[in-house]
Nucleic acid binder design. Structure first.
Lengths: 246, 246
DNA sequence: GTACATTGTGAACAGTGTTCTTTCGGCTTT
DNA sequence: AAAGCCGAAAGAACACTGTTCACAATGTAC
C-alpha cells in the first residue's frame, strides 16, 4: 500500500532532473479513467465518489481537489465521449448518409460504456467542446439544402432519437441482467402474442416485429424515417435521390 | 404534532356511528398525491421518501407498508400520467393530425408536473396500464397505411422525441431557475451570435432560430418532420395530402 | 534549510433508501 | 361488553451517499 519504506533511488537512476513520478499524481484524466472503470463494472447507480476513490487507492476528499462536484465528474465523462469524433466535410450528394453516420457513431459511442446513455441524457448538450461538431452537422444539413428553421431543430431531433433509443436499449439489458438477451426477447414476444387478440389485434400482430428484429435494424429504420422527413423539407434540386417514396 | 392530550370527544359530538374518519387511512393514492406535491415543490432531486412521509405527517416506514420501493412509487407516478388519456378512433383522412395530437398531449402531460420528464425517461414503456394506448396508436398508424415494420418502430420514435424534447425543455428551466426565461434565451442567443464567425458560421447564423423561437413552435416542427418521414412510407393512396414537399 | 503552497488524509455532517422491532388502533370473536 | 387479534404506524438503526473541514505530508521555491 505505502511505498515509503523504499530506499531513496540513487541519483544515477534518476533519468533527467527530478524523480520519475514515483507516486503517480492524481489528475482529472486519471479520475475520469477510474470513474469509467467503476461505471462499467458496477453501473451508474453504484457510481459513487467513494468507489472512484477506492479504485484509485485514495481518500474521497482527494478527488475534490481536482473536481468540483460529482456533476463536474459526470460532465467530464460526457465530454470524453466526443474525443476523436471527426465528421466528414459536407457533400451535397451524400448528405443523408452523412447524417446517418453521425447518428450511428453517436449510438456506438453511447454503447461503448455501460449506462453511458443515462449520463448523456440530462446534460444540456452545449458544452463548449462539442460546438465544432454541431457546427459541422449544420454544414452537412445546409449542404442538403435544408431551410434554416429545419436545421435549427434537426440537431435536437437527431440527438434526441439517438440518445433515447440507446437509453431504451440499455434499460432492457440492465433491468434483466441475468437472463440472456435471447430469453428476454422471446419471452417478451410471447407476452405480446398472448394478449387477447380482440382487444389488442395490432399488438398481437406486431409482436415479432417489435422485439424480434435486431436493435441495429430498428435503429436504422427510425433513422431513415427521420432523414426522410428532413429531406422532405429540402429545397435543393437533388434532394430525392431515387428511392424516395411518393 | 401529537393529539393524544385532547380530551376524548363527547359522545353527542360523534355524528353517526363511530367517528368521522379522524385519521385518514394511508393509501397508495394518497402517497402518490403527496409525492407529486413534493415533486412540484422541490424537484426530482429532492423527492425523497422522507419528504413524502413528512408531507403526510407520517413516519417513513409507514410508506413501505403500501409501497415496495421508491422505484414502485415512481412507477405509480408514471402510470398516473396516463389516466384519462383518450385517443380518437382511427381516421384514415386525418391520421397525421391524430398522431401529432398524441405527441402533443403527451408533452402536455409531461409538462404538467415539474421534472416529470425525468421520471418518464428511464422507464421501460410497457407497463400494462398503457397497452391500450399503444394499441390505439397502432390502429391510427395502420389507418395511415403504414407498413408493419414502420408501425413497430413509430411508437418508439414518437415517444422518444416527445420525452427527449420535454426533458430538454425541463432542463433549461431547471438549470437556471432564478433568471427569467427571457433573460436566459437572449443570453444564450448572444452567446451563439458572439462565436467567431469564421469557425462557426452556421451557429452564428442560426443563433436566433435555435433559441429565439417558441418551444411550442420548435416542438411542432420536429413533430412535422417525423410525421412526414412516416408518411413517406405510407402505401395508402391518400397519403400525401397536398402539402407534401417533393 | 526554511517557508510555502499544493495535495492527500481522516473524521464528521447532513442526507438518502430500507429494514427491524415495538407499539398502537380498530375490528372481530366470544 | 370484554378479549383477542392482526394489520398498520412509529421509532430506531444500518449502510450508504455527496460534501466539507481541520490537519498532516509532500514536494517546490527561495
Amino acid at each position: 500500500m505505502s511505498q515509503q519504506d523504499d530506499v531513496p533511488t540513487p541519483p544515477w537512476e534518476r533519468p533527467r532532473k527530478r524523480q520519475a513520478p514515483a507516486r503517480i499524481p492524481l489528475t482529472r484524466e486519471r479520475i475520469v479513467d477510474a470513474a469509467f472503470v467503476v461505471l462499467d463494472r458496477d453501473g451508474f447507480d453504484k457510481l459513487s465518489m467513494r468507489q472512484v476513490a477506492a479504485k484509485l487507492g485514495v481518500a474521497v476528499s482527494a478527488l475534490y481537489v481536482h473536481v468540483d462536484d460529482k456533476d463536474e465528474l459526470l460532465r467530464l465523462m460526457y465530454n470524453r465521449m466526443f474525443e476523436g469524433v471527426d465528421l466528414p466535410d459536407p457533400d451535397p450528394e451524400t448528405w443523408q448518409e452523412q447524417i446517418k453516420d453521425f447518428a450511428r457513431s453517436g449510438r456506438e459511442r453511447l454503447l461503448r460504456h455501460r449506462d453511458m446513455a443515462r449520463i448523456s441524457m440530462g446534460h444540456v448538450p452545449f458544452t463548449g467542446e462539442l460546438l465544432p461538431h454541431i457546427e459541422k452537422l449544420f454544414a452537412i444539413l445546409k449542404a442538403g439544402g435544408l431551410p434554416d428553421k429545419v436545421m435549427a431543430i434537426a440537431g435536437d431531433l437527431l440527438s434526441t432519437y439517438m440518445e433515447g433509443f440507446t437509453l431504451e436499449e440499455n434499460m432492457w439489458r440492465e433491468r434483466m441482467g441475468e437472463a440472456s438477451w435471447q430469453t428476454i426477447s422471446t419471452e417478451t414476444e410471447n407476452y405480446f402474442a398472448s394478449l387477447p387478440p380482440d382487444r389488442f389485434p395490432n399488438l398481437v400482430a406486431l409482436a415479432d416485429l417489435m422485439v424480434g428484429e435486431t436493435n441495429d435494424y430498428r435503429f436504422e429504420l427510425g433513422l431513415d424515417i427521420i432523414v426522410r422527413g428532413l429531406a422532405s423539407y429540402s429545397v435543393s434540386p437533388s434532394a430525392p435521390d431515387g428511392d424516395e417514396a411518393p
